[in-house]
């Protein structure tokens, strides 16, 4: 090994080590801090009397996050299978589906995914049925269960 080869090799090794180190630190710096496991929170939604007697009803459940009042929509369905709650989040790419009363279907406005009232996919790109959310009735109020960060409160 010549003196020149040795110096070139050493210089390359040092530069590679510095670049790799900086990239590792940058990736660690960018990765969000304070990620914590989410927990199931039952959020107040509506009065028990307001539940649909038959068919689909769009409702909202509310919770508090960092001092802000949050509200998200949910579909409450009552059919021969009983009363259950469906998340409006399309399983394709996360848009919010609408309920079409005439066709009795959930239709996603983004890519035309269609679900029946039980959440099953009829047509379009969605890979899975709409998510069923846990529904609880307590003291005459309807609660929807949802995974929320630890800082959230019902």
């Amino acid at each position: 090994m010549t003196r020149r080869n040795f110096l070139t090799g050493t210089a390359k090794a040092i530069v590679t080590a510095i670049v790799t180190g900086v990239m590792a630190v940058a990736a660690y710096f960018m990765y969000p801090a304070g990620l914590r496991a989410r927990a199931m929170v039952y959020c107040d939604c509506m009065d028990e009397d307001a539940l649909p007697k038959k068919g689909v009803k769009r409702a909202e459940y509310r919770y508090k996050l960092k001092g802000n009042e949050m509200a998200h929509s949910v579909f409450i369905v009552n059919d021969e299978r009983g009363v259950y709650a469906l998340s409006p989040v399309c399983t394709h790419l996360g848009c919010l589906v609408n309920y079409n009363r005439l066709k009795n279907e959930f239709i996603c406005p983004c890519h035309g995914g269609k679900y029946d009232v039980s959440g099953k996919v009829i047509s379009g790109p969605p890979p899975a049925p709409l998510t069923r959310l846990p529904l609880k009735i307590e003291n005459g109020r309807v609660y929807i269960g949802i995974m929320l960060p630890a800082t959230a409160a019902a």
Binding site: V25, Y28, F29, Y31, A33, G34
Partner: peptide, 9 residues
Amino acid sequence: RVVHLGWLI
């Protein structure tokens, strides 16, 4: 205080 290595950068 929160960001990974934020104090260092």
